[in-house]
């Protein structure tokens, strides 16, 4: 199993399932910034960092029956996607793990633990944190990155949403530096 797919599947397995393609995109972006070896390239879109590489990777994993995609309609005309491992995937993961270098498994476990915690957060918080980090990564200082993200997302800088997103962004950045 390729390392990038192993890491992605391991994180989704740890979370049980992930509701929403947007949420999955932002969670992987945060993990990537912390060194998770998924090389998909992100660009800034209307809803924050977005990777067509990752979107294609997810669709490919669904097609190859590693992931199961569930759809529901929370509102007329809207579709919500939910992803979980296919019944056969845990065995594949276990086989890959059995022969993987211990360091690879340990690192994937660390990313998975953080993924699980963040998957419970509100998608707007993830979106705002990811957007702050996009501009921080571009080279902006924290205050400029936060101001830019808040402006793009119509968020008030002092709001609880912004404060939570700033904390999350700084947490991700600190893992990146270590």
């Amino acid at each position: 199993m390729a390392l990038d797919n192993y890491c992605l599947l391991k994180m989704i397995a740890a979370a049980g399932s992930v509701r929403g393609r947007k949420k999955l995109q932002k969670l992987v972006y945060l993990a990537q910034l912390e060194g998770c070896p998924i090389e998909d390239r992100f660009a800034l879109h209307y809803y924050g960092p977005y990777s067509s590489d990752l979107a294609a990777r997810i669709d490919d994993l669904v097609e190859r029956k590693r992931l199961v995609e569930h759809t529901s309609s929370p509102a007329p005309g809207a579709v919500e996607y939910r992803y979980e491992l296919s019944p056969e995937c845990p065995d594949l993961l276990a086989r890959a793990e059995a022969t993987a270098p211990p360091q690879v498994v340990r690192t994937a476990d660390e990313h998975a633990a953080r993924f699980v915690e963040r998957a419970q957060r509100d998608v707007r918080e993830l979106e705002l944190a990811a957007t702050i980090l996009y501009w921080r990564d571009w080279g902006y200082e924290w205050d400029e990155a936060e101001r830019t993200a808040a402006r793009l997302k119509d968020a008030n800088l002092g709001s609880s949403l912004c404060v939570a997103a700033q904390r999350l962004a700084q947490d991700v950045w600190s893992h990146r530096l270590t």
Partner: peptide, 24 residues
């Protein structure tokens, strides 16, 4: 070397209607 969408890319539309933007 593994090609990726770093410099050039072909079209891969987003299937989530909410995420569709002119960029994707």
């Amino acid at each position: 070397s593994a090609p990726s969408a770093k410099a050039y890319d072909y079209y891969h539309p987003e299937k989530d209607t909410e995420q569709r933007t002119p960029e994707n």
